[in-house]
């Protein structure tokens, strides 16, 4: 079986909504080129709904396919609905991703959530209010043995005792 399924390949070869929005209502960035993937999402909001979603992605096939799928799913959603979009739902819509690429689906949903946070923060500021960002870190899987990684800040995998289970920035 090829590494990526047909659905992922379709979104990689024909990504939807690539680009930037001029004067966006919100911008969200996630990932780091050091770790191989970086995504920027741009949103346009109208009546509390995502009227337009565009993205730019530096990264692997999965990162590009995930960005495309996230943008397609999110378009037309209310902001609350979009904030509930989970990495698992994105991976499901793509009919599955290789385990060591699941972190790409985390990044995609995350970048979108950051864009919404950015929009809401600007709105709150305009009204003189405070806003607590809601985008959260999600679980990761070990690229060596696929086990779920502990959320304790260590980069080692307990399941296979690999010392470099997560990308570490600033070595």
């Amino acid at each position: 079986m090829p590494v990526y399924n047909e659905k992922v390949m379709d979104h990689f070869m024909n990504p939807r909504n690539v680009g930037e929005i001029e004067n966006p209502d919100g911008v969200g960035e996630e990932g780091n080129p050091v770790c191989g993937d970086m995504m920027t999402f741009y949103i346009k909001v109208k009546d509390d709904k995502l009227e337009d979603v565009k993205f730019k992605t530096f990264g692997c096939g999965a990162a590009i396919a995930v960005s495309s799928m996230v943008s397609e799913l999110a378009k037309g959603m209310t902001l609350d609905e979009a904030m509930k979009l989970t990495p698992a739902a994105v991976a499901d819509k793509l009919e599955g991703l290789p385990k060591n690429k699941l972190h790409c689906s985390n990044l995609g949903a995350q970048a979108l959530h950051r864009a919404i946070d950015n929009y809401r923060e600007k709105q709150a500021k305009a009204n003189g209010e405070r806003y607590n960002p809601m985008a959260a870190d999600d679980g990761h899987n070990c690229p060596h043995c696929h086990a779920e990684l502990a959320e304790d800040g260590t980069t080692a995998c307990q399941a296979c005792s690999s010392e470099e289970a997560e990308c570490v920035i600033g070595e």
């Binding site: 070869m13 191989g36 530096f58 990264g59 692997c60 096939g61 590009i64 690999s162 470099e164």
Partner: peptide, 27 residues
């Protein structure tokens, strides 16, 4: 990023490899 380049080249019938993090499995 190298993996994306590799895949697009593959779609044009060209086989190459890359030392990028994404192609390494170990990220």
């Amino acid at each position: 990023e190298g993996e994306a380049m590799l895949m697009l080249l593959n779609s044009r019938g060209i086989a190459v490899s890359s030392g990028s993090a994404c192609t390494s499995r170990a990220l």
